[in-house]
Simulated scan of single mutants.
Amino acid sequence: MPSETETAEQRFRSAFERLKTGKPQVLAHGTSVSQNNVAKEARTDPTALRKARYPALIREIQAWVEINGQQREVKVERQARRRAREDSVAKVKRLTVERDNAQSQLASAHRKVLELLLTNATLQAKLDELLPPPTPLRK
């Protein structure tokens, strides 16, 4: 609750500090810092925090947002790289499973070819027993 002796600027500054440290009392945890959110955290209408009345505070908020906006971009970039790395790890796992399945299918195909060659040789031997190969003609 705002104190009776606390000025509006002090309430805005307190709200700004709470938002910067990530410990808001009014807004949800993790709410971003902005002029509107500082005013809301101070339990006032967003239009109450005007540049004409609080120019120094507005400059501080804007500077903090700009600096931390750049840090946020770096954080977003890191998160994107982490996601890409996680996607790469998942892709490697998926491709490893595909490779293992392909190798298994290839080994099965080789085994089947050998079985068919053996069956063919066995049947050819039986055929040769039943029908001996033709003898060459003599002159």
Rank of each mutant, 00 (worst) to 15 (best):
E6A: 07
P46M: 01
W64Q: 00
P133D: 08
E66W: 11
D45V: 11
E98I: 13
T44S: 08
P133A: 15
V26W: 01
P2I: 01
M1K: 14
K40G: 02
Q103R: 04
P2K: 03
L116Y: 11
A84W: 08
S3R: 02
L116M: 15
I61N: 00
A80K: 15
A90L: 12
R50A: 07
R50H: 03
R13M: 08
H29P: 12
F16D: 00
V33L: 07
G22K: 06
T135C: 10
L118H: 12
E6M: 04
A107W: 04
H29V: 07
A109W: 06
L49C: 04
L114R: 04
V65P: 01
N120E: 13
E115V: 08
R43I: 05
L27A: 00
K51I: 06
S14N: 07
S14L: 13
R83L: 14
N36C: 15
A42P: 00
D100T: 15
T5C: 14
N68L: 01
I67M: 04
S34I: 09
Y54G: 01
G69M: 08
H29G: 14
K139N: 03
T119G: 06
K23D: 12
S32V: 13
L130T: 00
A109R: 11
V38E: 00
W64I: 04
T47E: 15
A15I: 03
R99M: 08
R53T: 03
A80H: 11
T119V: 08
D45K: 11
V89F: 10
H110T: 12
V33T: 06
A63P: 07
E66M: 13
M1P: 09
L116I: 10
K93H: 08
P136Q: 14
S32I: 14
I58K: 01
L131G: 01
K40M: 09
L27W: 00
A107D: 13
V65F: 04
I67T: 07
S108G: 04
R72V: 07
P46K: 04
K51A: 05
Q25T: 02
N68V: 01
E77N: 08
